[in-house]
Amino acid sequence: MKITVQLFARARDLAGAEHVELDVPAPGRVADLKRSLASRFPQVSPLVPSLLVAVGTDYANDQTQLSPDVAVACFPPVSGG
């Protein structure tokens, strides 16, 4: 399945795009999405171990199930404040 992912901060800069469409085997989990992101954008792969993933406006974990209709965002550790 195709999943559109929104990227932020250094993840976006390294990928060179704010929105990327990734191929994830169905039924896919967040862990599959991270693998897909790393293989499509090798320059992002050093960030992947610390990458945070959100489905909608909630944090997901590697086991979170994905479907094509969910809004997914990936970003490195936050630094607000």
């Binding site: 945070l52 490195p76 550790p77 630094s79």
Partner: peptide, 17 residues
Amino acid sequence: WVHPGTANGSAECGIRN
């Protein structure tokens, strides 16, 4: 970019998210 806990992401407070 400041991304605490990443290789070259200077950790302002050292807290891993």
